[in-house]
């Protein structure tokens, strides 16, 4: 693991990375405005690692997942798989064999006209896997997610419960035996009891197959219990990242601190140090100048609306935060960070 700020394209830890994104941006054009759904995101996803991506709705979590899989046109930046660029015909083909995705809504993720058999076989057909292997691999994938193939192969999605649907979706993602699985809020639409079963299935697979997972969620306690590392996103940027223990137990960025204190704790008194966030997530067409969190930040100070902070080390083992509190040089120098400022971006 490298602790330093990533400055060069050749990173010593690149060999361990399953995927990496570097300065990735995604812009959506809305009439005359431009929404910056992703605004310079850099992130490494290591082999066999469970990486949590947390943040409010609309912060760009799902866009990040889609951009990583080449499903979203990017405005800039680079996505790599095993250190090789994952774009172009060849790169994308490789990416699509090794990385799979499962989606939030189990009711939308399966084609209502396909039986379970066809749904789970589809990846094998698309990836031109030899026909003789299909039956065997489909049955194995269903078995892996705890579904009896004989009972379920000929069912239609409308004959399955939400949890069963999500299992089928996981089976369809696993049938190609990927190295990484991106899960976009995989349990947020399921009942609490089913939720833990699905999570158990995912974690078991992760351990048994050394499968790397990206877990996109807005549930911080879930991320804490599942993930090795966590990246916290705010308005299209990563504002803090590090090991799950570091990020949750000693959060550095005021946004992460606010998220952590907002998690309910089961004591009679509740939390006393609770500091809830004011205001709402700004529109991504109007990203605030300076630090994008400054209008809502309880600890903002002088340079915050002028200087755009970058991720810097705030601890050991790769704990980084993008906050001027920990970057006195940038705060004093007033050098405008290379970010964007939409309205009044004059350096102070």
């Amino acid at each position: 693991m490298s602790d330093g700020v990533k400055t060069t394209a050749v990173d010593p830890s690149a060999g361990e990375d399953l995927m990496a994104v570097e300065d990735l941006s995604v812009h959506f054009r809305q009439r005359r405005k431009v929404a910056r759904a992703l605004d310079g995101v850099s992130l490494e996803w290591r082999r066999g690692e469970v990486l949590g991506v947390v943040g409010e709705s609309g912060c760009g979590k799902s866009t990040l997942a889609r951009a990583m899989l080449g499903l979203q046109e990017t405005a800039g930046g680079e996505v790599t798989l095993h250190g090789n660029e994952a774009t172009g015909k060849k790169g994308l083909a490789e990416l699509r064999r090794r990385i799979q995705m499962i989606f939030q809504d189990p009711y939308q993720t399966l084609n209502p006209r396909q039986r379970v058999r066809a749904i789970v076989t589809e990846p094998l057909i698309v990836q031109n896997v030899d026909r003789s292997e299909h039956t065997e691999r489909v049955r194995r994938a269903l078995g892996d997610v705890g579904m009896d193939p004989d009972r379920f192969l000929d069912r239609y999605p409308h004959q399955l419960s939400g949890g069963q649907r999500q299992r089928v979706a996981i089976a369809a993602a696993l049938v190609l035996e990927p190295e990484g699985l991106i899960c976009d809020e995989p349990v947020s639409m399921l009942d609490a009891s089913v939720r833990s079963q699905i999570l158990a299935v995912l974690l078991e697979l992760q351990q048994r197959r050394n499968l790397a997972l990206i877990f996109i969620t807005h549930d911080l306690s879930l991320a804490w219990s599942l993930c090795d590392r966590i990246a916290v996103m705010y308005l299209g940027r990563i504002v803090e990242q590090g090991t799950a223990v570091d990020v949750i137990e000693s959060p550095k960025h005021p946004y992460t601190q606010a998220l952590v204190t907002a998690v309910p704790v089961p004591t009679a008194k509740g939390r006393e140090d609770r500091e809830l966030l004011k205001g709402e997530l700004p529109d991504s067409t109007r990203v605030p100048a300076g630090c994008r969190f400054n209008p809502r930040c309880p600890r903002r100070f002088e340079p915050c609306d002028k200087v755009d902070p970058t991720l810097i080390d705030v601890g050991t083992s790769g704990h980084k935060a993008a906050c001027l509190l920990y970057d006195p040089a940038a705060a004093e120098g007033g050098a405008p960070a290379p970010g964007y400022s939409d309205t009044s971006g004059e350096p102070g």
Partner: peptide, 21 residues
Amino acid sequence: RSFVERARALGAGDGYIIRTH
């Protein structure tokens, strides 16, 4: 719908997606 997105993420072409989904 996410089943179309899923097929795209698998690398399915437009023709395949139109035919099967």
